[in-house]
Structures are given as structure tokens and as C-alpha cells.
Amino acid sequence: MLKYIGKRLLYMVLTLWVIVTVTFFLMRAAPGSPFSGEKELPPAIQANLEAYYGLDKSLFMQYVDYLISVVKWDFGPSLKYKGQSVNDLISEGFPVSFALGMEAIFLALALGVLLGAVAALRHNKWQDYTAMIIAVLGISVPSFIMASGLQYVLAIKWSVLPVARWESFAHTILPALALASTPMAFIARLTRSSMLEVIGNDYIKTAKSKGLNSTEITVRHTIRNAMMPVVSYMGPLISAILTGSFVIEKIFGIPGLGMHFVTSITNRDYSVIMGVTVFFSVLLLVSILLVDIAYSLIDPRIKLADKKGE
């Protein structure tokens, strides 16, 4: 097991290196500079700025410098926001994004599994149809429209929740819901089809033949087995939540990390682009590893490592 995780970590470092390299060179290949404005800067200032941020060195040297700074986990100063380091941006933005993401993941899982389970247990009854209509809506309505819709109905029409900002728990509900809607719908459909498949399985008949009631069967036999595809969806779910947060954070004015991802690119804020990319990549790679470990813990048939490793 430990050996396996070690191997995976090695692969992660390799993947990360590839991501850093590709992002670095793609970013620098893109036209436009972080200092281009309507008024052209005096060449002396332009040169000064470039020297200050090390942009005057050869591209390869800059790349090497960057690799070193990634290893040191110091992403340097933002080119756009004076006096702020990328590490500051990350450490200020990430806790917010993390809280939002966790709430959304929780909602997506809880509501998605509930909806899917109800639909499967009431297969071809009105509960099933209702749940699946909700799921289709959730999948087909883009999250920014969902966000505006929720904002309009719950915040403006009914005034039960705040429109935007990130202040209290009440402020987190709408963005988390909007962010969760698509993955929730996806999980609901996944759970439903998986449950239906599991319900048709012989071991459910076995469980019934033991005299268990339907609750016992659902809880002990159906859900856990039906959760397998859902657990394997956790990786994509986390990346969906990460990427989805860009739009949602913008709409709700949430000071998270997501918006830096987009604005840093339009600003050509090289250090922020790289810092945020590296950070998100590490986050994603680690979550995928955690999901795989969790998966092997839930499904005894999956072995993380070869027998020797165990």
C-alpha cells in the first residue's frame, strides 16, 4: 500500500512537471504582455519592469528559475496587483474556495444520492419522473444561468437569502447550490441507474430471502454497492467543482481563488497564472489519489497495489 502510494506520488511529480512546462511555454507563447496598456510605456520603464520581474532573462533561464520556485513553493509577486505575492493570493483565496467547494461537493453528493436513490426505489413512479426532470434540468442548465435563476428567485423575489458576497453561512447557500447543481444532477442519474442495476442483482434477492425489510436491504446491500460508480465520479466531480467555481465566484462576488484563474490570464499576470495552475494541479492530483484510496477502501475487490505491497 505504502509502496503504491509512493509510486503514485512519483507519477504526480512527473505529471506536475509536464503541466508546469506546458503551461509555462504556452503562456509565454501567447501574444500580449503583462505591461501592455493603452499608452505605451517609456522603453526605460518597460525594461525596468521586465528586469524587475526577471522577464529580461532568456526564456529557458526563466523556466529554470520557475521550476526552482515551484520546488520552493514560492510563486513570487503578482505582476498585476502591487505588493501582493501569489502565495498571498492563494492563501487568502483558497480557504474561501475550499469552503465553497466542500459545501458544493457535500450538497451534490447528499442531494444527488438522495434524489437518485428515491428515483430508483420508486422506479417508474411519479417520484422517479420528478427526480429525473430535476436531474435533466440540472445537467442541461449551465451553472451561470442556474446561479442567476437562484439569485433572482431566492434573493430578489423572495428575499430569503443574500444576493451576493461571502459573509455568513446564509451567503454560502446560493453559490454552493449553483455550483452543485450540475454534478448533483449527474450523481442523481448515476445513483439511479446504478441502484437499478444493483436492485436487479441476485444478491438483493438473497438479502430479501433472508427476511430483511426494504430499509435494511437498501441501507446494507443496495446503497453501498450502488455507490461505486459515484465514488469513481469523485475525481471528475472535484475538477468540475474547481472549474465551475470560476464562474460562480464571479457572479456572487466571492473572494476565492477561481476568479484569479480567469483574470490572471487576461491580465497576462504570469506569476499568478503559473501559481494558480500549479496549485490547482496539485490539488486535483492529490484529490484523485485520495479518491482512489477511498475507492479501494469501499470496494474490497479493488486492490491498490499488487499482493506483495499489501
Binding site: Q151, S159, V163, A164, R165, F252, G253
Partner: peptide, 18 residues
């Protein structure tokens, strides 16, 4: 001063008195 980079949200917040 808030920093909400979405003008619909800005107007909605205004309408809510925020």
C-alpha cells in the same frame, strides 16, 4: 466598497438595498 466583478449581481444587490 465591495468587489463583485459581475454587473448583474451589482444591480441586483442594489435593488436589494445592499
Amino acid at each position: 466598497f465591495a468587489m463583485i466583478n459581475d454587473f448583474n449581481t451589482e444591480l441586483n444587490s442594489f435593488k436589494q438595498g445592499e
